[in-house]
Nucleic acid binder design. Structure first.
Lengths: 118, 118
DNA sequence: TAGGCAATCATACTAAAGTACCATTTTTCA
DNA sequence: TGAAAAATGGTACTTTAGTATGATTGCCTA
């Protein structure tokens, strides 16, 4: 009888621990699902932007320069970030102006925002 | 005997449904926790920005110049829009740089966006 | 009413941005 | 594999942006 009681208790404890364990797993799974769903949106947004960028015929490098430009960096800083010369940055920026139909970098930034490129 | 079997089955089914229900609750709780943790940072950042925005103490004219600047206009164009000289625009812009802690207008635009000023 | 502040404008200057043109190397792809 | 596109970079130049400084006017308020 005592043994039976003990074993019953032990089984209950085991069950309890098991349940808590499962519960933790499920909660963790929920957090993970939320994380994945969040990142999916972000990734899709980036893909969408790249699609749009492609439609505007922006090259990969031009798009990268655009991103840095939006961040408020100078040509020199962009050059340092992308490991290219300021000269090359100016070339990319000029091409961006043509493709975005902008006269200045501030106008280019504004238009890029309106086009949901960034 | 049959009844007993049925009732046992019914109890198992109830338990099963209950378990699934609890599992869903736990997963939902996990998603919620992830969501809350994610937004906590964002909310804190916004509160911090609103405080900063208030401390920035931009004058009416400076704010107006900022808006035009964000629109991608040149100093000359801003001057024409606000019916003031380009010289005055430059003064306001310089003051904006000090208050926003920016070196360039693109950086000022970027910081203003982050501060939810525009 | 004197002092502070916002707004205005000017001049003179330096720094950065932007244009035009050309050239070379890499990548891509039909 | 050969042509096209992309990426890189240089020089020389013009334009715009940004800094420094000083000055005037009008408005609010302690």
């Amino acid at each position: 009888m005592q043994l039976s009681k003990y074993s019953l208790f032990a089984r209950d404890l085991t069950n309890e621990i098991f349940s808590v364990f499962i519960a933790c797993l499920l909660i963790g799974f929920g957090v993970l699902v939320g994380h994945i769903l969040r990142n999916k949106q972000k990734t899709e947004a980036i893909l969408l932007n790249q699609e749009k960028a492609h439609q505007l015929d922006l090259s990969k490098r031009e798009y990268e320069v655009l991103i840095e430009m939006v961040d408020g960096k100078s040509n020199k800083e962009i050059a340092e970030t992308l490991f290219i010369s300021e000269s090359t940055v100016k070339t990319h920026v000029s091409n961006l102006f043509i493709k975005l139909d902008a006269k200045r970098r501030t106008e280019a930034i504004h238009k890029a925002r309106n086009l949901d490129l960034i």
